[in-house]
Write a protein that binds this DNA or RNA. Sequence first.
DNA 1: AAGTGGTCTAGACCACTGC
DNA 2: CAGTGGTCTAGACCACTTT
Lengths: 247, 247
Amino acid sequence: MALVEKASAKLEALPLYARVRNSLVDRMISGEWKPGESLPSEFAIAEELGVHQGTVRKALDTLTAEGLVVRRQGRGTFVAEAEDQSILFRFYRLTRNSGNKETGFPDSRYLSQIKSSASPQEQALFGISGRDYVWRFERLRSDVTGPILWEQLIVPEKRFPDFSEKTQLPNNVYQFYGANYGIIVAKVAEELRAVTGSREVCDLLEMPPASPLLEIDRRAFALDGKIVEWRISQCRSDTMHYRNELK
Amino acid sequence: MALVEKASAKLEALPLYARVRNSLVDRMISGEWKPGESLPSEFAIAEELGVHQGTVRKALDTLTAEGLVVRRQGRGTFVAEAEDQSILFRFYRLTRNSGNKETGFPDSRYLSQIKSSASPQEQALFGISGRDYVWRFERLRSDVTGPILWEQLIVPEKRFPDFSEKTQLPNNVYQFYGANYGIIVAKVAEELRAVTGSREVCDLLEMPPASPLLEIDRRAFALDGKIVEWRISQCRSDTMHYRNELK
DNA sequence: AAGTGGTCTAGACCACTGC
DNA sequence: CAGTGGTCTAGACCACTTT
């Protein structure tokens, strides 16, 4: 039952706490603990794996730093939900320019929602074949002041088997992925560019044609390292900006 | 000599390791240890402050996570330099689009360099008065393929007393701040927008007039929490993009 | 009161660096 | 070889949450 024989530990590449961390991640991937559910206590994990509680703590500290679990004193350790660490700042960096009025979380209007075969680029991105399908969503996000951004969202059908033309994506899609498919978004990579808005998008955003827009090309990675979502957004840049803090 | 009486620890708001961390940061701010210099060993700090070595380790782990120190097994603990954690990715997120040819670190050509009184916005930003001065640098950064970005860089004279019209800023200004003024840039906040390039900037960047440019408004914070540099960059967005990874 | 995570001390041993 | 940071165990006590 021990995670590894301690005698062989010296031969292993990774320190013990890192192997504990990995074994916990594996069990999250397998779905043993879904987002929002609690993990066993430090002592329980330590006993199960045959290591000291302090070593388990270090593994859990690592997971906390990675944002994969949330620990609450007196309550327990929980698989992080997309809600935790305030999605608004974790994955949503767009902010109104000033007059910091809270305009609330943006609402989404879906413009289209179709299943189609994966393009070569999508095949490469998602690691799927030409016979596989992807779902493409096109939506317009607005807050009380009006339209903010236009967005195309693409996911591989394989990982979201029972989608249909009627599937309603909620505002917080990452929580939706977690709750319904056990998919934990562990990392997001974004590329930002300034582009000239097409006539169609400018119309949707209620801007003059050829306005400069902030384009965000985002890939969301699941715990297993594979891309589960590709998203291209074009955002008004007159009233909004993208915030980033580097430490 | 002890950091705090342990008896009074219960009354303190912060845990011991956090107070150790803060006292170490204070000494970095005071200039006792400058960027690149080494701190005392864990045991030495522990003895000096009258705490256990494990507590000092936790404080140093925190500082490592914050990027303020770098630890090297067998050698010691060093105040982080701007070079550490590879400046290219820490504070320089601009990358060529594809054909990932390494085009090298961009070179800078200075277009102007003047001292002038602080505008109201600059007074607020830097916390200085209307009688204080700022230095404004305007530069064009290029790599082997040509111009990449135009940039205006503003620093308060107070913190950089012996600047002159002849001061040559090196490419890596943060290392320069550290080595020459003991200023450790602890945090950088950026706001990104898409803008329409002015005729002058488009000319400098060798782009058609009114091209969409990626504008980056950046404030650099020193260890003491004050802003030490304000920078506005406008970057070509046809060949370059801004990369960001959210975890 | 019992169970959880958070802090702090204690000490052993390992791995790496530089003399 | 001595000195550094890195890992791992061990156990005490505290703070918070739930029952």
